[in-house]
Design a protein around this nucleic acid. Sequence first.
DNA 1: GTCGGTGACCGACCGTCGGTCGGTGAAGGG
DNA 2: CCCTTCACCGACCGACGGTCGGTCACCGAC
Lengths: 203, 203
Amino acid sequence: MTVKRLRERQAEATRELLVTIARELFVEQGFAATAIDEIVQRAGLAKGALYHHFGGKDALFKAVFEVVLDETAEAVLSAAVAEDDPWDAVRAGLSAFLDACLQPAFRRIVIIDSVAVMAANSWEGGMEGIELPMLRVVLTPLVASGALPGVTVDPLAHVALGGLYGSALYIAKAADPQAARAEAEVVIDVVLRGVRAVATGQP
Amino acid sequence: MTVKRLRERQAEATRELLVTIARELFVEQGFAATAIDEIVQRAGLAKGALYHHFGGKDALFKAVFEVVLDETAEAVLSAAVAEDDPWDAVRAGLSAFLDACLQPAFRRIVIIDSVAVMAANSWEGGMEGIELPMLRVVLTPLVASGALPGVTVDPLAHVALGGLYGSALYIAKAADPQAARAEAEVVIDVVLRGVRAVATGQP
DNA sequence: GTCGGTGACCGACCGTCGGTCGGTGAAGGG
DNA sequence: CCCTTCACCGACCGACGGTCGGTCACCGAC
């Protein structure tokens, strides 16, 4: 299995090339404004090659989307697991997520274009696919500690994810992303402190 | 001015008809999957009529978008202004917005499709157009009171909107919407109490 | 009233784009 | 050495967004 046949390796290389090129163009121009012919031409391939490896333009986008999302999920999780205290883990994860929002690829692919493309194909969106499990990992310790009576993980994760998405949109559209990120972090910090205060009974 | 000429009235009726038909189809099928020919055919008009009144498919979508957004903004505001206490107003507004998130038109037009369409034309998105003023009315008293040091209205509104959308998503997908709504409101309540605790210095 | 201008609306036409499909040549098992 | 397999090719198609010259009812001027 480790020794792959020549054809197999070339095919995989072609797939990765297509994903890489498509990612560049999707980030630069957006999904709708990027023509398949342009992707294929820049990759030095014919249109048939793309349709041999991917079901269509949407499927190619989904492949790109998953790569970008995986990168972000990994960054968030690795930041969270580095902390011992559950609250510190949450804050570290949020900070990593806000960093991701500053990157053009995440903004364009995940925040702006993915929602419509996924909805058009009845696919799972960014919310449910990977981000939610990611958030559950961070939030479950909090809920399990019993600090938030009556609160269950699933709705909490959804609300948190939505809030993150809202701040992501704010950052994505701001003229000064750095300043927007700082503003958003203040807000999230207040919310976090507030929830913590309710949990511990201390302001 | 109140007495409009016949041509003027007919033109306005045509515009409204186009917006109404387009809204139905956009909600049913989404923006990308709806063909201009289909809109025009169902309206009993020719394609030229549409392009006479609107700059293009995107401009027609924006007109539909603004109508849907206005409806929601009005519902939220009327719910909020009925309350005297700022915190009660916030809660009432949030509840009304949650209801809006459950309606297919708002979900499809504003949440799913608007972001990509607006981004493609460098237009103002849903958050900045009307939703933000709507939420600003509700949230500005809080921020202006100085209870939340360092917090500005815009990012706070975005985070709140996102959180509400997340909970709406959770409710929409749940097998038991009533129970899900109760769960979500517990979470929102915790967050609200938390922010309030930070603001007042009391848990 | 009638006459010329205006503008709402028509619909054939165009360029582009996503998607299809029969073909081709090299890889690789027998 | 041959025959199957398959990654890849590229001409072609149909659909869609957008254009543009034409048409005719409406409306103010005289």
